[in-house]
Design a protein around this nucleic acid. Sequence first.
DNA 1: AGAGGTACCTGGCAGC
DNA 2: TGCTGCCAGGTACCTC
Length: 272
Amino acid sequence: MPELPEVETTLRGISAYVEGAEISNVVVRNAALRWPVPKRALRQLIGQHIDSAQRRAKYILLHTASGIILLHLGMSGSLRVLPSGSAHGKHDHLDIELDGRHVLRLNDPRRFGCCLLATPPLEDHKLIKSLGPEPLGSQFHADYLFKQSRRRKVAVKNFIMDGKVVVGVGNIYASESLYLAGIRPTLSAGRISRARYGLLVEAIQSVLSDAIKAGGTTLNDFTQADGMPGYFSQQLRVYGRAGLPCLQCATPIKSTVIGQRNTFFCPACQTF
DNA sequence: AGAGGTACCTGGCAGC
DNA sequence: TGCTGCCAGGTACCTC
C-alpha cells in the first residue's frame, strides 16, 4: 500500500545514506519482480556514486553517472537502510551496498514492485513519459483538472487515480480526498464544476501532505532492522469505515466498488 | 480515444 | 487445527 506519502517518507529516510555514496556491491536474490531485475546492468554500477535521490510519482530515482536506478515499491514493498552484513529475510530481494557500510534493501512480499535501470533523459522513459503532474506541484490546480475532465465519463474516483491525469493518488487517498471535497466518487468526472475541482485539488493536497507529515514522525529511524513498518497507519476518515458513523454527520459510511476497487463515502456529506 | 477488464503475487483472514 | 478460498492493492496492457 505504499502511496505517495509513504514513498516520499521513504525517500527522505534514505536520502542521507544514499546521496553521495559509492555503490560498493549489488546483490539480487530474486530478480522476479514485476519485471525482471537487470542484475548484470546493476552490477555494472559497482564503483559508481549515487549523485542524488529523487521521487517522481511513486518511483524512487537514484541518479548515477551511468544511469538512473528506478525503484517502485508496488503494493507491499519497502526500502530500508541497514548496516552492511545484516541478515536478510524471506522477501529481501535486492541489496545495494553503500560505501561498504550500509545496505539499501528492498523487501517486497507481493513482488509488484520493480527495480530497473534507465538511461537519461528520464522523461523519455516508457514508465515516466506519460505521467501527469505531481499533486503537490504547481502544475496541479483547479483549471488543469477541470480542463482534463471535460467530456470524460469515468467516475471521478477513477479519474483522479489515473496516473496520466495526476500521479500519486491511490485507492485510499482517492476516497479520503473525495470525502473532504464533498464529491460523490461515482460521479462522472466531466460533470463536476471548476469550483468543485478547486476544492478537490485542495483536498488531495491536504490529505497527501498531512500523510507525509505523519510519516515523518512515524518512520524516523531507517537504520534499525525492525524500526520501520512497511507503511504507516493513517487517521483515515472514510476508508475502511463502512457502516461506521461519518465523523461529520454520523450517517453510516457506505462502501461500493468502482473500477474493481473498494470505495468509501458518506452518502450525506458527498452529494456533488 | 476512452472505458473497462485482467493479470501479476502473497499474507492474512473468514469460513468450514 | 488445518485446509480452502477470497481479498487487497498499483499499474501496464489488453480488448471492446
